[in-house]
Nucleic acid binder design. Structure first.
Lengths: 339, 339
DNA sequence: CTGAAAGCGCTAACAA
DNA sequence: TTGTTAGCGCTTTCAG
């Protein structure tokens, strides 16, 4: 088991079945017309030899690999895992294999990974967000590799988008809170470095508040790691008596805020409203359940895979799909308590 | 952008730099000795043409792909996502690319995916658990593809294992609970279909209880989906007044039990002790925090990648690594309240 | 130190 | 319907 056995090749099968390699190729790929006799001989030979075709050779010859690439910031983020799960499922259903790389929220690393993906000959590539190294777009354009940027939607990008408007999604949250009378709001945002989604969400909150004569000064925004423990600390540090609501950049951060508030004896939503973003399945189960924004990561992953594959197989461009988010009002947000 | 551009090949670079393709190959792979002059000409040509090597052709020629495959039951399971994250990170650091497929806890599907992986020419393959279609092992053996089964450890498997003993891990939980005086225990196990880990955990609990003169009849075990909502239902259906402790097959199930207990007004751990398995990061944050078993998914993923790559690059067999789990006692378990 | 040539396994015209 | 023959792009002897 330490030595790598020589695997049977198409040639071996051909010899064994007494046909040409072209014929073997034809039956393997179900292409053209083959007599029943020949077909059965080939099939038998394949079974007897335990023949498994070589995808590299096939890709080299076909100039198509049958793979889809995906580069994501992290897998330790339930919502990305969910999106990739759907992406892989759709790809698998359509006969494609997933090549997955993690950029660790580092755009320089992401650039290198994109090159790797091109080397691998992926037929399509999924990226997260619209913020990337410029050279990424150049390379993709130059090589003609189909790609789609997910988790964001911007009318004015050159690349196709399958995602939602991060800025606009926050309007619903802000409107919901201001309707409930909240004016003193803080935001526990996700880390915005190399991350346009986090940045857009902050801007969304800020702009919407400003449009209502309110504001979100720098002092009332903290960027937090994707971690409940980190979020608790951040919450603890920024919370004060005047604050009546905290908007979180994602559900995990919201869990931290919620748990820490409870530990501090702050009543949610009585004294403080808390909102999340993503609508992880746990969010509906907590007590109080979390008001959040549903993003449909599974639809996004599924759609991205389908768009990519359709573009590849029909030799056309990748279409953008604008997904909508939905505000899910639950128990963690409520009216400002009158004094 | 709808037409696939012809990418520059090694041949183009060779012509441009006025050298042979062999030379280009040498500078690209840093192999052999090349004069400074030639090297710089080649490097320049590569940049000017934006040359990106073709991994398929390389793999075909080298009979090595530089990829590692992984087939996991699901990505919507935080602990697998964590393990794969570590696996990918290690692979990436060592120059390998990850090919990931999801079997959806279906061994028949897994078998097909293994064939796909062999077609892709993965240099090494990660599988979860020791329960697989027999033909999987035959194929792997026959083709000589290095592989490792994770999330389990059994002395008597033919395949290398990088994991822990699921049966034995439950002994710690059982001992902990019986030490606290618990005798009426129920188990909310993970779905055991096509899943030796879940099965082993059930057996672990049962055997350990029996060794102490206690028992875990079928009527006190329910298999539950990996879902907080499902777990709440199952908990609700099985809980009764006599039960003083519930052992859960994983942390997510435990969250469901805990939240439902709280909703029902059951005091944890006053009236009921609850334990989990996995030690997800949230488990330490909940209130009460969850007594659970830490499995070190990141170490497992990292180790698996290293073992695989070492085996490939040194032409040797894959070594097994026995990982240990650790009981983490927190607030959700306590002594049986004396009546 | 560099080039020429063969070959990795498969597919795709083009003939037969 | 089936076989023959070129490659696909890269690496690797083997010469020079």
């Amino acid at each position: 088991m330490t030595a790598r056995r020589k695997m049977p090749t198409q040639q071996d099968v051909a010899t064994h079945a007494n046909v040409s390699t072209a014929t073997v190729s034809r039956v393997v790929n179900d292409r053209g017309i083959i007599s029943a006799d020949v077909r059965s001989r080939v099939v038998l030979a394949i079974q007897e030899l335990n023949y498994i075709p070589d995808a590299s050779a096939r890709a080299l010859s076909l100039q198509r690999s049958g793979t889809l690439g995906a580069i994501i910031p992290s897998l330790n983020n339930a919502i990305f895992a969910e999106g990739i799960n759907a992406f892989e499922r759709a790809a698998q259903a359509l006969g494609y294999t997933l090549i997955l790389s993690v950029s660790q929220q580092d755009l320089a690393r992401e650039h290198d990974l994109v090159i790797k993906m091109i080397e691998r000959g992926v037929d399509g590539l999924l990226l997260v967000g619209n913020l990337h190294d410029e050279r990424v777009f150049e390379r993709l354009e130059q090589t003609g590799v189909r790609h789609v940027c997910t988790w964001a939607f911007d009318e004015n990008t050159s690349s196709a988008n399958v995602g939602f408007d991060n800025t606009g999604s926050m309007f619903d949250i802000v409107d919901h809170l201001t309707d409930l009378g909240h004016q003193h709001i803080v935001m526990l945002a996700g880390k915005a470095h190399d991350n346009d989604r986090a940045r857009d969400r902050i801007n969304g909150v800020r702009h919407r508040l400003e449009s209502k004569g309110l504001s979100l000064p720098e002092s009332r925004v903290v960027e937090v790691e994707y971690s409940v423990a980190q979020s608790r600390k951040a919450f603890n540090a920024i919370i004060d008596d005047k604050t009546t609501a905290v908007i979180c950049g994602n559900d995990v951060i919201a869990y931290g805020a919620l748990l820490e508030a409870q530990r501090m004896g702050i009543d949610v939503p009585g004294q403080l409203s808390i909102t999340g973003f993503d609508d992880l399945s746990l969010s509906a189960e907590l007590s109080p359940s979390l008001t959040t924004v549903q993003v449909g990561a599974d639809v996004m992953g599924d759609t991205a895979a389908h768009q990519l594959i359709r573009a590849v197989e029909n030799q056309q461009g990748v279409e953008s799909t604008r997904l909508t988010t939905q505000l899910i009002v639950r128990e963690s947000s409520g009216p400002v308590r009158s004094l």
